[in-house]
Design a binder for these strands. Structure first.
Lengths: 154, 154
DNA sequence: GATAATTATGTCGTATACGACATATCGTAC
DNA sequence: GTACGATATGTCGTATACGACATAATTATC
């Protein structure tokens, strides 16, 4: 028989948070998709480009770590970017296992120019509507939740 | 040269929050996958089952709304549950457009028994490690972020 | 009562996203 | 220098997840 504490139920909160996360994720994606259909990049592709431009020749491992995604996922993203000629894989000279990712010259300028606005996605727009204090609270809560999950993971 | 205002940069916060969300999502999924490979349900499937058991004969539209997912996504989830015989689609008698989703008898008991623990996923475990105050702060921040995104959506 | 607009699903193509497995390469121990 | 473990990547199968489109059925409009 599960105990039913009178105090705030973490189970109910968990369910609520899960729904919130689902909705948040969905809305963060939505407005960008419009831009994507105009021939631009998807959200993860954009994020990957930003990292690659900032860290020219980053390894796939490094990129997947930076993006908090599985290497197999990032491999597919890079595949698609490569197919569009936006990125190139070059095997490292000294270590043949590593495939270093380089941004095409055209893209570097493009990204450096556009990233400030590109990175101003729906999340930034939403945060602008909040006070500095609220932003800090949200950021702190997010960080805390991540820590809690990491701790529970062990 | 990007200006560096002394005050908190919402752009930096946004980038941080995005990374946190990615990591959070990943960790929330991970431990469940182990259970899944034991022949159980995936996270979205579990969530769908919980809703269906609670709302016997819910429409696909209703289910997708409850889950904050596109109807096409939920359609696929129901497909897979149906293939396993856990769920059944029955066209509504009075309105032929609606396909009402019913949980198999076996599943109802199963879910009613197991859901309390099943829903005690990694998120609940993580929240247990936090104080009641922290939990409230996290839940509030999540709700606020969702509201902000919804507002920005308009 | 026929037609148009709306609504609920289904389906398709594509892009994430993961784990499991395979392969190639490096470092190390021997 | 060879065998062995660790590491980096690639590949495969599956499950989300979405928008766009098609279809069927209800409702509204005339």
């Amino acid at each position: 028989m599960p105990r039913r504490p009178a105090k705030a139920e973490s189970g109910t909160q968990a369910a609520e948070i899960e729904r919130d996360l689902s909705a948040i994720r969905r809305m963060m994606r939505k407005p960008l998709e419009a831009e994507v259909s105009k021939g631009n990049l998807t959200v993860p592709q954009k994020a990957a480009m930003a990292v690659v431009v900032r860290h020219e020749g980053i390894s796939l491992k490094g990129l997947s770590t930076a993006m908090s995604l599985a290497h197999s996922t990032v491999s597919g993203i890079v595949d698609r970017l490569e197919k569009q000629g936006l990125v190139e894989r070059r095997t490292d000279a000294s270590d043949g296992r590593i495939s270093r990712i380089h941004a095409a010259a055209v893209v570097k300028d493009f990204v450096r120019e556009k990233i400030p606005e590109l990175s101003r996605g729906p999340l930034s727009a939403a945060l602008d509507r909040a006070s500095a204090q609220e932003r800090s609270q949200i950021a702190a809560a997010m960080r805390r939740l991540r820590e809690l999950l990491e701790a529970a993971q062990l």
